[in-house]
Design a protein around this nucleic acid. Sequence first.
DNA 1: TGTTAGCACTCTAGTTTGGCGAGTGCTAAT
DNA 2: ATTAGCACTCGCCAAACTAGAGTGCTAACA
Lengths: 344, 344
Amino acid sequence: MLDERKLMVLYAVIKSYIESAEPVGSRTLSKNYELGVSSATIRNEMSDLEELGYLSKPHSSAGRVPSDKAYRLYVDQLLKLNMAPMDDIYNRKIKEILARESWNMEDLIQSSAKILSAITNYTSLVATPKLKGSHIKQLQMVPIDGVGVLTVIVCNNGLIKNSIYKTDYGISQDELNMISNYLYHQFKDKTLDDILKILNQGRIVLYQFDDDFLKGLLNALTDVIKELITIELYSEGITNILNFPEYKDIEKAKSFLSFIEDKELLINILQNTALSDDIDIIIGQENIYSPIKDISIITATYTVDGKTVGKIGIIGPTRMDYLNLIRILKIFSRHVSNILEKNV
Amino acid sequence: MLDERKLMVLYAVIKSYIESAEPVGSRTLSKNYELGVSSATIRNEMSDLEELGYLSKPHSSAGRVPSDKAYRLYVDQLLKLNMAPMDDIYNRKIKEILARESWNMEDLIQSSAKILSAITNYTSLVATPKLKGSHIKQLQMVPIDGVGVLTVIVCNNGLIKNSIYKTDYGISQDELNMISNYLYHQFKDKTLDDILKILNQGRIVLYQFDDDFLKGLLNALTDVIKELITIELYSEGITNILNFPEYKDIEKAKSFLSFIEDKELLINILQNTALSDDIDIIIGQENIYSPIKDISIITATYTVDGKTVGKIGIIGPTRMDYLNLIRILKIFSRHVSNILEKNV
DNA sequence: TGTTAGCACTCTAGTTTGGCGAGTGCTAAT
DNA sequence: ATTAGCACTCGCCAAACTAGAGTGCTAACA
């Protein structure tokens, strides 16, 4: 579609704009990039690129700024490149930071958000894995003296959660085994999502036991399942965004911050990205849910049991350093996956 | 110290400044507040108040602005007032919002932060309770088939936490009972803080059991205790601060946001406030830890078992609406306490 | 002696003006 | 097809100016 030279010019504009945040003029390009043609020629090419929708001018006598379409072209080309320098400096650094005896998932997720924002100087987003489709591997109930009943659920991906149902109703381990066995056989082929639906219908009855007791117990179980399938989102380095010149305007900063504070919306947006095993990028208004122009999100996925995936990402101005961020996210998500596959 | 009229003038300046965020001039006061004297007289009084350190001028021909000392005077007087309108509109509203079957502590804390920022339009701070001095009421260990050992700790205030130690080492319930009984008797008179110290010394030995197994088990126990005594801080409504005109300057906004992002520091500051059963207020640079001028923090305490206390607060410019915020915090913290005393 | 009206003075914030520089688009020459 | 040259456009910035709000002082008054 675009000939060689147009492409060169376009990429030069993008690179320059990513670096400087200033609209790029033809002279700047001919000086700083070795395009082999004069500024006048570049001007003509830029004019064509504008007509084609890849560039735009803030005002008639300013330089030009890449459009979302231009970033998309640029990014797709980046993604085609195979950039996996395994012995990268980032690789070692990240490995070092994440080195630790054992991690529990919650801590790892939260730390990841912090580390990621610290090494990139952007705002990070990290979401806990999506478990709706997971299964129950084990269901165990234990009486806790003087307190009630503890319910433990082990997920097929190794995640474990539990909750306590406080009650005075005395019940033996044997009786609880009966209940948990029964429930386990009801649930073992179902997804967590389906299990939740069944529980909410309230149709489970075991005539041997007190109705109120059973109801309380099932409520506690429902809570665990809910907790399991609820996606939590952590974000760190919010202040970093204010270092970008485009957010010197307080109104823009405000709308960015409200956006970041709306975790629900962010989770939705992240969930709507491809669950492919690789990098996904949303540029500007490509995502209809995104209320804000001029923001891009790069996400990578991490896995827990080879299938169950969570998201890890970076959010910033469309003029973000895609090249490095993609690189870092690839490495980072791989390390997180490694830890989780071993550790959970 | 200050005569009646000076006090009236000072309060008028404070009120006006809280409302408008603009330096207050003598004419504004004589027009809007019924002080019964002319602007010239007010000017003289203001001049005196400036000499006494209660007011200051941003520049020589501007109106005057209250100093931290002035806010302190104002706030101390507010706190002496008994303002407990139980049938207040806030009271009903908050009660309504918090009405729910049952709350677990984590959810309640997080929701509180959200609700509080929503109804006040300020940034909220809510910290989980300080449990360092608490005791263990119960310690139970349960084998989980094919996974390992689950350790449950019940605190004297009713809080329950647990962790899982993954191991292949087969162990029976009876053996675990032996271990947990032994540990319980070691720990029952100690505070959580002390227990953690003992665990960290690594001197606990039970010769009957495999050394590695025991070490792993104790590590899991250590994690639970750590989790219990770690104070978590939640903050919501960060964007609200940007609505205040004093934060139109991006640098100020940035330093405020970095401050809010530094949870450790905030926890320290909150912990250094009085653990009295009432409102505590830090104005501006009164708190030496606070890196930022012109910020006030109002905190209230909530209780879990009548003794164990957590903090709930509001952070904003020193020019904050102390009167209403104190009122709301009093009511809010009482409701939170009520829920926790019943529910945990 | 305390209060007030009046006035000169101060300082900021907002507006206007003009020049500078960066950039464009067109044209004509190569 | 490329490029040099040039006229033109427009935002940015600094300087100059203005309006307005507020102070502090003085002198008059009750």
